[in-house]
Deep mutational scan, measured.
Amino acid sequence: TGEEYIAVGDFTAQQVGDLTFKKGEILLAIEKKPDGWWIAKDAKGNEGLVPRTYLEPYS
């Protein structure tokens, strides 16, 4: 299990392996990579890379 984050903006996948999401979606951070791209999972179970700058902790 990971930590929940809320998307603060829309993001469209730029390449294969990225995860597209919309502002307000809750994402589960699976792995926090030091380069600023995290592996996350959305509510539908889709998994991919997301930019850290689009996420804020969800409580």
Rank of each mutant, 00 (worst) to 15 (best):
T1I: 14
G2H: 14
G2S: 12
G2A: 13
E3R: 11
E3P: 08
E4I: 15
E4T: 14
Y5G: 00
Y5E: 00
Y5K: 00
Y5D: 00
Y5R: 02
I6F: 06
I6K: 07
I6A: 04
I6M: 08
I6L: 08
A7P: 01
A7R: 00
A7F: 02
V8T: 12
V8H: 05
V8Y: 04
V8N: 10
G9E: 15
G9P: 02
G9Q: 15
G9T: 14
G9D: 14
D10T: 06
D10P: 05
F11L: 04
F11S: 03
F11A: 01
F11M: 04
T12G: 06
T12M: 11
T12Q: 12
A13Q: 05
A13E: 04
Q14F: 09
Q14Y: 08
Q14I: 12
Q14T: 13
Q15D: 10
Q15T: 11
Q15P: 02
V16R: 11
V16E: 14
V16W: 11
V16G: 09
G17I: 04
G17Y: 05
G17W: 05
G17C: 08
G17N: 06
D18F: 15
D18R: 11
D18V: 13
L19H: 02
L19N: 01
T20G: 12
T20V: 04
T20I: 04
T20M: 05
T20N: 08
F21W: 01
F21Y: 02
F21I: 11
F21M: 06
F21R: 00
F21A: 03
K22H: 09
K22Q: 09
K22V: 09
K22P: 03
K22A: 08
K22E: 06
K22N: 08
K22R: 12
K23E: 07
K23D: 04
K23L: 07
G24M: 03
G24F: 05
G24C: 09
E25H: 06
E25C: 07
E25M: 08
E25Y: 04
E25R: 00
E25F: 04
I26Q: 04
I26R: 07
I26S: 03
I26A: 03
L27I: 07
L27M: 07
L27E: 01
L27W: 00
L28A: 06
L28W: 13
L28D: 03
A29T: 07
A29V: 15
A29R: 04
I30R: 04
I30F: 06
I30Y: 05
I30T: 06
E31C: 14
E31I: 12
K32V: 07
K32S: 05
K33S: 11
K33A: 09
K33L: 13
K33F: 13
K33R: 14
P34I: 10
P34L: 11
P34C: 13
D35K: 03
D35E: 07
D35Y: 05
D35M: 04
G36A: 04
G36Q: 05
G36Y: 05
G36T: 03
W37Q: 06
W37R: 09
W37L: 06
W37H: 06
W37P: 03
W37M: 09
W37G: 04
W37Y: 09
W38D: 01
W38G: 01
W38L: 08
W38M: 08
W38C: 04
W38I: 07
I39K: 09
I39G: 03
I39M: 11
A40N: 01
A40V: 15
A40L: 09
A40H: 01
A40S: 03
K41R: 15
K41G: 04
K41I: 13
K41E: 05
K41Y: 05
K41P: 01
K41Q: 11
D42N: 14
D42W: 00
A43Q: 12
A43V: 10
A43N: 10
A43Y: 09
A43S: 14
K44R: 13
K44C: 14
G45V: 00
G45Q: 04
G45P: 01
G45L: 03
N46A: 08
N46C: 08
N46Q: 10
N46V: 09
N46F: 08
E47F: 14
E47P: 04
E47Q: 14
E47N: 07
E47S: 11
E47C: 14
G48F: 03
G48H: 02
L49N: 11
L49Y: 14
L49M: 12
V50L: 03
P51A: 06
P51N: 13
P51T: 03
P51H: 14
R52N: 12
R52V: 13
R52H: 14
R52A: 15
T53Y: 12
T53K: 14
T53H: 14
Y54E: 07
Y54I: 09
Y54Q: 09
L55W: 00
L55P: 02
E56Y: 08
E56F: 08
E56V: 11
E56M: 11
E56R: 09
P57C: 08
P57G: 06
P57D: 06
P57V: 08
Y58V: 12
Y58A: 10
S59H: 13
S59E: 14
S59V: 14
S59R: 11
S59D: 14
S59L: 14
S59G: 12
